[in-house]
């Protein structure tokens, strides 16, 4: 089980180089990070996975982007929009994470989408930056939305990932802080552990339901 921060944005998207983010992640108790638009590698004992964040494009473009990035080993995530878009995206083979649920419509992720996410092993990302940096209504809305996601997760058991969306090392939080912040949305320690290893879960190929022995 690798403890992973599912989204960080190194320089030039942020103010911290990917090596420095990796050093900081190691100090904060992470084993790996998913860095946007950065080649994969290992820095200071922390595995940096390359992440592809797709946002504000129609489903057609998502399909072509996923096709291009297939077999590249990148962690592909798509920003959530309305319910139809989300269901379509979850159905695309190769999409690993659905992000930005907190800023999508109230009905963007329902029980049908949750069932599809569980079947297709697509994770839903919990963006902690909206809890850390958001204030008043923004934070309240995010907490409420994540609590709703957790209710669906308990029922359908789709993967969850946790990300700080750090653009600077100052935005990163250690594992203990993350567990504390997740307690605000009703996650207990086993839930947090499962969520922190969510990236590994969605990247590991699923074992077939029926095993041919001979």
């Amino acid at each position: 089980m690798k403890i992973t921060d599912a989204a960080v944005y190194p320089y030039p998207l942020g103010d911290t180089s990917v090596r420095r983010l990796a050093l900081e992640a190691e100090a904060l108790g992470f084993d790996s990070i998913v860095a946007a638009d950065t080649p994969s590698g290992v820095y200071g004992g922390v595995e940096v996975r390359s992440g592809l964040m797709i946002r504000d494009v129609p489903v057609k473009d998502v399909i072509s982007a996923v096709k291009r990035a297939k077999d590249s080993g990148r962690v592909i995530s798509v920003n959530a929009a309305n319910n139809n878009f989300n269901r379509a995206v979850i159905g695309i083979k190769g999409v690993h994470i659905l992000r930005g649920i907190q800023s999508a419509d109230k009905t963007a992720f329902d029980h049908v989408a949750a069932k599809m996410a569980a079947d297709n092993r697509v994770a839903v990302d919990i963006d902690l930056s909206s809890i850390i940096m958001g204030r008043s209504v923004v934070r309240q809305r995010a907490i409420h939305r994540y609590m709703d996601i957790m209710v669906l997760e308990q029922r359908f058991e789709f993967p969850i990932t946790l990300s700080t969306h750090a653009r600077s090392l100052l935005d990163m939080r250690n594992v203990r802080d993350i567990a504390g912040l997740c307690s605000l949305i009703g996650m207990d320690v086993p839930d947090v552990e499962r969520a922190l290893s969510g990236v590994g879960t969605v990247l590991t190929p699923r074992e077939p339901a029926v095993k041919v022995i001979a």
């Binding site: 320089y11 103010d15 911290t16 180089s17 090596r19 420095r20 050093l23 900081e24 600077s168 090392l169």
Partner: peptide, 10 residues
């Protein structure tokens, strides 16, 4: 005058 966080290797 923003601060950048780098490593010697960078």
């Amino acid at each position: 005058t923003n601060r950048l966080f780098l490593t010697k290797e960078d």
